[in-house]
Amino acid sequence: MLLSTLSEMKCKQNVLKSTDGSVEFSQGDTVVLVGAYGPADCKESKQDVKEAIVEVNFRPKIGIPGIAEKYLEQFVKGVCESCIQRSLHPRTTFSIIVQVIQDRGSLLSCAINGTSMALQDAGISMKFMPVAVTVALKHKEEVSMETDCGTEDYDVIFSPSLEEEEKAFANLTLVFDSVKSELVSTYASGPMTSFQYQQCLMSAKNVSKSIVQFFRDSVSKKLAADVL
């Protein structure tokens, strides 16, 4: 089965003077701005004696953050808690702010990839860098059915646009770790068979490796720009 192309990525690091680490990350037409602070002071009531706590703030462009944003916040928070070496900094907070600049589909994966780069930019010690891939499963249109040579009647779309996300019968965001390419977290909506899930998992795993390579490239380019 032929893979669809992944949308173009852009990463601009250290864009905000005020934060410890900040990144403007875009995936296709979706753009997010992520800032990270930490390890920083923490209220006594929130402190954890054994490890640092993580706060994520998801800010939409229009209106105040609602339930949808809170849900995404929790998801990103879970991913960050697993990747940051929290036991190194007990009684502190890591605070991450995700500002949506332009939403044209696969927002969650863009936000997680941006967060990952922002944490890197802030120089926070991590066990691995989370890498997210959004996959949409869409029924094939009838025209293409006639020329279809395979047995599957659906398309696997990587980094879908808003329209494609709407038309798809199932959406899946998979988060991998950058070291062993193991699954860290999954966000799924819509019905799918276990075969379909496996198929998405395997192909997204391959894609995640090339995203890690992109992370590496952009970090080394940034460092080279600083040195030369």
């Binding site: 192309t5 990525m9 601009k12 894609v207 090339s210 992109f214 952009s218 380019k221």
Partner: peptide, 23 residues
């Protein structure tokens, strides 16, 4: 700089080579 960072995901090998020669 931002435009330079624009990396095609499909073939990341070529970009790294270019970059190595630049360094």
């Amino acid at each position: 700089k931002k435009e330079n960072l624009l990396v095609e995901i499909v073939n990341p090998i070529t970009t790294t080579e270019n970059f190595a020669s630049e360094l």
